[in-house]
Nucleic acid binder design. Structure first.
Lengths: 245, 245
DNA sequence: CGGATGCTTGATCCCCTTCAAATAACGTGG
DNA sequence: CCACGTTATTTGAAGGGGATCAAGCATCCG
């Protein structure tokens, strides 16, 4: 029985059935979990690449800066997310990882990937699939940034957050905590904090959302889904082609 | 000796040294190459997922539409590129693949991935790395879309194209063929064709670029690199952690 | 309770869009 | 190789979405 409460096991076994051996293998790869206070940086862009993480609790985000100070938040990480995948193709981190909340991280070393690739084709397929799923999520975000208005972008972001939160907690409803500042939302969506404020007020005035106590409520999620042509990439991965072992 | 001129072998062996066995394995996975006329669609968004491709010759691009007709080109594919990676995590294609030129494709089936994962950890690592490298390229593009002006986006695109073309042909200089229409560039960068025209004229007036005979010349690439804080993601992948076999 | 941080609001500006039309380049058939 | 329709590029004028700057409020936290 998998009595071990490994983050990685917890996370990956959600996607596809894994053998006992694979589960054990995963559990041994993990290092001791590690807390990080809100506002702190786990690593900075340019740092030598170290570990990958599973985000056990709290929100975080990855971002890059331009020389003149413009900032782009690239990913908002939710509990259960694997963090650091894109960087492993390179020697140095391409983004800075900052904690939104007090956060708990479960690190596992980059070299663990090598072990997985050598020993478990099925786990390898899973890692690859997650990476490729994330790529499609980026593509969806790219479409939002390229062709959507500020209002649509915010709607898209909210739907995306809901879908992601629902992955680790199926009980998530149309009301959930949103700990990001408007400046952070702005840096994520490529607009300004001022316009985030204006747009969210407008969305609230028109009954699309409600804000209170750091939480947000989607009043009519399916309307927002139509508005943004939203597609939940977390719900329907294809695992049928995976090797059996 | 690898006498077979397999596209896949050609492509992948560029990144990291591979064993004879791996090279042979790759060669057998490939199906017969296939031509596609310019302007035609290889597959459409929503189609059941079939093959992956190596683009042997010509340019192509992948795009999505919004219900109201807005279009976002997501990737511009150059000779040597592997096409279709993001889709394999799903049952259906998420984008439409359209040919810019008369194109030659080397298809290999999705099931080939399963074979690779089972038989060659080293090739698996390579596939994963390419997927993750592409993810970083998307992140760079995202940053451009979120925080850069039209002019900076165009500069970024040109630098990216040059870097990619140089991967398969190191002889590529600051002058190269640019077969995209301004409408396509616009749909790629999230601006309008009209503004692409205006901006490129301005860039030409100010001596940053030259256009002639369907080609473009970068007059001072390093200046453009500073302007956009450009980073060549194709030049420096980290393969040091790969399994040996 | 006081400072800092985050949110809202107003006035003004500009990058880019939209619409429309003219010009140029291209592809095809004769 | 030219003629002609088609598609791509350029140009102009006008308008809007969102940026910028600056100030006033609300909230959080020690």
């Amino acid at each position: 029985m998998a009595e071990t409460k490994s983050c990685l096991v917890e996370k990956l076994s959600r996607y596809a059935p894994l053998s006992e051996r694979d589960l054990e293998r995963l559990a041994t790869l993990e290092e001791e979990e590690r807390p990080c206070p809100r506002g702190s940086d786990v690593h900075r862009a340019g740092d030598r690449n170290g570990d990958l993480f599973v985000l056990k609790a709290g929100w975080a985000f990855s971002f890059t800066n331009m020389p003149d100070g413009r900032r782009q938040i690239v990913t908002v990480h939710h509990p259960g997310d694997v963090i650091g995948f894109p960087d492993i193709a390179f020697r140095n981190a391409t983004t800075t990882l900052r904690c939104v909340d007090d956060v708990t991280l479960c690190p596992f070393p980059k070299s663990a990937l090598s072990v997985i690739l050598r020993e478990s084709p099925r786990l390898s397929a899973l890692m690859l699939s997650i990476a490729l799923r994330d790529q499609v999520v980026f593509i969806d975000l790219l479409r939002a940034m390229g062709r959507m208005s500020a209002r649509e972008r915010i709607a898209h972001m909210l739907l995306d957050f809901r879908a992601r939160l629902r992955m680790t907690d199926p009980a998530v409803t149309d009301r959930f905590r949103l700990p990001l500042t408007q400046q952070q939302i702005a840096d994520y969506l490529g607009i300004t904090n001022v316009y985030v404020s204006r747009t969210m007020i407008q969305m609230e005035d028109e009954g699309e959302i409600v804000r209170s106590e750091g939480h947000i409520t989607l009043r009519d999620a399916s309307k927002l889904e139509r508005l943004t042509d939203f597609c939940d990439r977390y719900a329907d991965m294809d695992t049928s082609w995976f090797p059996d072992t």
